[in-house]
């Protein structure tokens, strides 16, 4: 990477950090926007006792100006002090830590499915025109209308009642058993994304296949497999990578649906339960973590794309 590319990248990552800062302000201000007394909002669904009121005022520095409140909130999140949930009556970190592993595993499992089947079928559809392409197109049309919860209940019905090959409830014990238990949840999460990624892959690959520089390679007699590797897939990959960050970040949020359906106690279930019980501190912390994940992933994606295509790191380029 040349100096120019590095500088462009830094400015892009700077913009991402600004986004992170601004979205943390948005998430923080949820307390201020909640109707009623912020103390009550932070106490969540419970009626605060006088001791709780003091504890909340102390923890969130509610007597201080708003910007001090914000700084102390961000400061404590950054230092790993995620505060106390007054609904669950425990430290937020103790709520998140034990649930994180299963969600992480579920997201990774789902990602593997998405990459293998989504990217795979997209390439297949682009390369094999005709019947294969038609089949993939019909499949993806159905797939993008198949939300996680619908796939989940169909899978639960088929495997829980009719076939019984895979467990339909709980996370299991130990890594292998975990994976076994996570198969159906991962499939239910993956279907919609497989369809989505497959379409993007097909579009990107088809665009490259019909591009003029591929035409040049063809007329020069470069073998088709080599053209595919060095010109088609390489040039299509930035487009795929650019949706990767968003996809992974949103998987962590959408995992809630699969966790809910298959009785997995993960982060997603914690998020929705906390929301249902109006436990604002927990929801805020988890939201901030997801946004931070989004920013970090996108920064990584930008670096990878810049390595593939140094010209891409220009600050802003319209489609």
């Amino acid at each position: 990477m040349g100096a120019r590319t590095v500088r462009r990248l830094l400015s892009k990552i700077g913009a991402l950090l600004l986004t992170l800062f601004l979205s943390s302000v948005v998430i923080f201000s949820a307390v201020l926007l909640t109707p009623g007394d912020p103390v009550v909002a932070l106490a969540g669904g419970v009626r605060p006792t006088p001791e709780m009121i003091d504890a909340i005022r102390e923890q969130y520095q509610l007597d201080q100006p708003v910007w001090v409140q914000y700084l102390s909130w961000v400061g404590s999140v950054l230092t790993g002090d995620l505060g106390t949930s007054f609904v669950y009556k425990t430290e937020v970190i103790d709520l998140i830590a034990p649930r994180f592993g299963i969600t992480f595993l579920l997201v990774i499992y789902t990602l593997v499915l998405i990459v293998v089947f989504g990217v795979g079928s997209g390439i297949l559809a682009a390369v094999r025109r005709g019947r294969v392409e038609q089949a993939v197109l019909v499949g993806t049309s159905l797939g993008v209308a198949m939300p996680t919860f619908v796939v989940a209940i169909v899978l639960i019905w088929i495997f829980g009642r009719v076939l019984g090959w895979f467990p339909v409830y709980g996370p299991g014990e130990g890594l292998l058993d975990n994976l076994y238990h996570l198969t159906l949840p991962a499939v239910s999460l993956a279907v919609l994304y497989i369809a989505y990624i497959s379409r993007i892959t097909r579009g990107a690959v088809v665009a490259q296949l019909s591009s003029e520089h591929v035409e040049t390679a063809r007329v020069r007699g470069i073998p088709p497999s080599r053209i595919f590797r060095r010109h088609v897939f390489l040039n299509a990959s930035p487009q795929l990578l650019s949706v990767a960050g968003t996809t992974i970040a949103s998987l962590f949020a959408v995992a809630a649906i699969a966790e809910h359906a298959f009785g997995l106690g993960g982060i997603g279930v914690l998020l929705t339960e906390a929301a249902a019980r109006k436990d604002l501190p927990v929801v805020q912390t988890l939201s901030l973590m997801l946004v931070a994940l989004f920013v970090v992933l996108n920064a990584m994606v930008d670096v990878v794309i810049a390595i593939i295509d140094p010209d891409s790191a220009r600050p802003r380029r319209d489609a």
């Binding site: 003029e212 520089h213 035409e215 060095r230 040039n235 593939i308 295509d309």
Partner: peptide
Amino acid sequence: FQTPRAHLNPL
């Protein structure tokens, strides 16, 4: 070809 820029792989 007419447009050499399009006919070379930009990457």
